[in-house]
Amino acid sequence: MTTDELIIATCLRAGKIMVENGSEISRVDDTMIRIAQNAGVVQANTYVTITGVMMSIQGRNATQIAAVTKRTIDLEKVAQVNQLSREFADQSIDLPTLHARLGQLDQASRSFPLWLQLVGAALVSGPLMIMFRQETINTWPTVVIGTLGYLVFYLLNRYLKIKFLSELVAALFIGFAAEWAYQIGWGTNINDIIIGSLMPLVPGVPLTNAVRDILAGNFVSGPARAVEALISAAALGFGIAVVITIF
């Protein structure tokens, strides 16, 4: 591989990891240009969207494209790419090492274990229900149903790999479970239980990134992310609407 090719391959790998794991577009652009500049390229062109990353070096023949087919949310990886880019900038690692380290980063999964994510879901659903509704009677049903709802979403998303369908089924599960808790007299207000239990599934990352991308002027990726957030919200809302209509 020539140096030009290695530079482009490294930048594309960094950009692809960042887009895949939920970074905003302007940060990806910035990181890729920085890596290229620190590798000695005077003028590099990047074109980043949420479905693909392209890069060329001005005046040379090298241009490459990396397609982004899967998108998850793992902000730890975004932070690590940033860290590696910083290390490359103050020359504590060289270009081949950066390329290899990015490859390792892409393979390794350092996400929190499932049980800790479930603790997270419990912490989101219970406290937010109390904060939104100013009552504590329904706390335990909300915590339990919120945690189980997130578990349903997690497992389905892992084996089905269709995010919107997993959200729909999780919302259906939460609705029926809340109705059941209400009927056996465990909870007193079905609305409060559903509101709290849905909070771990709220599409916070696509929504925030949509706003940030649009404000930064990325009119391809921003609206696309907004659509993603909207479909997620619609899937959740539709699941709940079905339950409300039945009972």
């Binding site: 939920g22 997270g120 879901a121 419990a122 659903s125 990352v205």
Partner: peptide
């Protein structure tokens, strides 16, 4: 109580979207 709940909720969402431990 409200402030403590806000802290817990943010911590929980951080665990779900997998932000780095020391953040």
């Amino acid at each position: 109580g409200q402030l403590m709940l806000a802290y817990l909720a943010v911590l929980g969402f951080g665990l779900i979207i997998n932000i780095p431990r020391h953040a």
